[in-house]
């Protein structure tokens, strides 16, 4: 085998590897464009020292609320060592916008069984949009060590059917309902 043949073999192999990478890239680009998938990106400052007193993250405004367009906004405060509220209901197959803020230290969370996974950094609002295709409870642990009580910091996202989604006159709903 001379050098020309070796070079030819290497070029052929390079083409095969490039083809494999190309398949992956094409699949990602087409599915991302068709399903509007992209990494959550939201740079939105908020004053962590006053978010519990004023603005959208006051206690009365936390939890799930239905928007006029039918989508759901969920506001959660991550604080040492709990997510407030501890349980949020959302309807199945609707666009859900999660908005998180923290008044103390860096937290992180994921919603199990989904691709929702974000950090919650003091001074910024973290926002993730998603749709839940299946009803059921989703465990939401804090996954960024935030102090001695980190292990007990978790929440529940309760995905309910359209029949079970019965918000009050203000469009709000909590987990206190027959289930």
């Amino acid at each position: 085998m001379n050098e020309q043949e070796i070079l030819k073999t290497e070029l052929r192999w390079s083409a095969i590897v490039a083809g494999a990478i190309g398949v992956i890239v094409v699949v990602i680009v087409i599915s991302s464009a068709a399903m509007v998938l992209h990494p959550p990106s939201n740079i939105e400052p908020i004053d962590p020292t006053s978010l519990h007193r004023e603005g959208e993250f006051v206690e009365a405004n936390l939890g799930s609320i239905e928007n006029p367009d039918g989508s759901i906004t969920v506001r959660i405060v991550a604080t040492q060592f709990a997510f407030l509220p501890r349980c949020v209901p959302v309807p199945v197959n609707r666009r859900v916008v999660f908005r998180f803020a923290t008044p103390d230290v860096i937290h992180g969370l994921l919603i199990s069984g989904t691709n929702v996974n974000t950090m919650v950094v003091p001074g910024y609002v973290s926002q993730v949009n998603t749709v839940f295709p299946e009803p059921g409870d989703r465990f939401v642990p804090c996954h960024e060590y935030c102090g001695i009580g980190h292990g007990g910091m978790w929440s529940i996202v309760r995905v309910v059917s359209e029949e079970e989604w019965q918000p009050d006159s203000n469009g709000r709903m909590t987990c206190e309902f027959p289930h």
């Binding site: 699949v27 399903m35 509007v36 998938l37 990494p39 989904t114 691709n115 949009n129 998603t130 749709v131």
Partner: peptide, 13 residues
Amino acid sequence: VYFGVFLPRGPIS
């Protein structure tokens, strides 16, 4: 993994 796990978990943005 992409079609069997990632996509069925729902879109994010």
